[in-house]
Write a protein that binds this DNA or RNA. Structure first.
Lengths: 235, 235
DNA sequence: TGTACATCAGTGAACGCGCGTTCACTGATGTAC
DNA sequence: TGTACATCAGTGAACGCGCGTTCACTGATGTAC
């Protein structure tokens, strides 16, 4: 009480303001999309003069980068949590649980999903800071594959031979990720990965409109099939 | 030669101007994306005053609608052509051929692909005119499934039972499309459809960057597997 | 414990830009008789 | 074949708006001695 205020007070209000900026930014993202995100609109919402934002972000792009990093971290954390919650279950079960967690996240945060998995923002080049968070969600799948290979529940062979060129680039990927997964398994994993996001995007972007009514049921069913495919179950 | 000009001359130059507008619009689409598409910029390119555009389109949205319709028609025609060119081949072969045609089209027209299969444009509501062209590409797949069921090369049964709710909505879809396809086959078809577009989007939107080098090889391999899945081949 | 100084948050004005859309208009092109 | 009229393409000015970013500034908050 000797000091007029606690030390770290300024830092705390600063963090709070940054959070408030991002909260408003996410709000506008949902309404107008990434290209329509405006620093002036955010400042207005916060009762601040437009130039005030520049105390916190030195450009519109740096705010976008922050939002992208947050989105990747958030969906990555969701995947990790689902994996953790089901860690004692079968590989197939865990696969489905992770996929459903991804979809739930996407439905809860459609604008942020679009930000990272939708059409790239023209004129925006993602800086290197976004790479690590982007990979986080993929690591969950890679570890799942490694677990399945280790305990024998994922078949390492394949009826369709993996082409040489694909084999070799998958091999260098496993090295990079520090996991040892046979190429056919990795190929199936990558294919299932694109299928999960394809299904989520089709739903979110409206391409299943008038086709599917029970989105939950369709997604669950699709993921169960995909899980069988990943482990190499005869289909 | 009696008339100062041929009849229909005005209509022809009008068509040509509309084509020029759309050509410039597609060009800007590629550079700035749909939300950055500007009527003034197009007019400028054409050496026309900005209000001149309003002789041809009564708003920015109606130009967007035209571009969307064209994109759907164009990718639909590409799928139809691929199907036609391979019509005497096996179902699996035709499936792969159609998928590769879709991917080729997407790579040749990335902005238009993003326009129809990417993040929805905020504030733009697609009018009913876009429905018919949007369905065109799906019809190619539906007919392929029907052919395969008819000649026995697609298995109508499934190891994973199709949930009741999904079954019933798929049944109403076949009625609508005027084709008779068993629910399990339709389910696999729809799942493969989302997987095709998921794979194309992942490639185009940059999510396979630093993961895949040989995109052609990976895509082809993925589609071959998917084709086996669609016909119900043991995997 | 008190004071001097440095840091920081937020202001307000301005620069220079682009946008969609409306409106009254001119002049050329097509059509009907 | 020639003329009168209607249609249409494109002009130019204007309305009212929003944007990102810079800059010199004020006043409050924190820090060092």
């Amino acid at each position: 009480m000797a000091r007029s205020t606690e030390p770290g007070m300024r830092a705390a209000t600063r963090r709070a303001t940054i959070e408030a900026i991002k909260e408003r930014a996410r709000h506008h993202l949902a309404a107008e999309g990434a290209p329509g995100l405006s620093l002036r609109a955010i400042a207005r919402d916060l009762g601040m003069v437009s130039s005030g934002i520049y105390r916190y972000y030195d450009s519109r792009d740096s705010l976008l980068t922050d939002l992208i990093v947050d989105a990747y971290d958030s969906i990555g954390a969701a995947a990790e949590a689902a994996n953790r919650a089901h860690r004692s279950r079968s590989i197939e079960h865990r696969f489905v649980a992770i996929a459903e967690a991804l979809r739930s996240w996407a439905r809860a945060h459609p604008a942020e999903y679009g930000l990272v998995y939708g059409t790239p923002i023209p004129g925006y080049a993602a800086p290197a800071d976004t790479i690590a968070p982007a990979v986080r969600v993929s690591m969950v799948l890679l570890r799942l594959l490694a677990d399945g290979v280790a305990d024998g529940s994922i078949h390492a062979t394949d009826p369709v031979p993996t082409p040489r060129s694909v084999r070799s680039e998958l091999a260098s990927l496993t090295e990079l990720a520090g996991v040892d997964i046979p190429a056919p398994v990795l190929a199936r994993g990558l294919q299932s990965w694109t299928a999960i996001f394809g299904t989520i995007s089709f739903e979110l972007f409206g391409h299943l409109h008038n086709v599917i009514v029970d989105y939950d049921g369709f997604f669950h069913h699709t993921m169960e099939r995909l899980a069988r495919f990943v482990v190499g179950q005869p289909d």
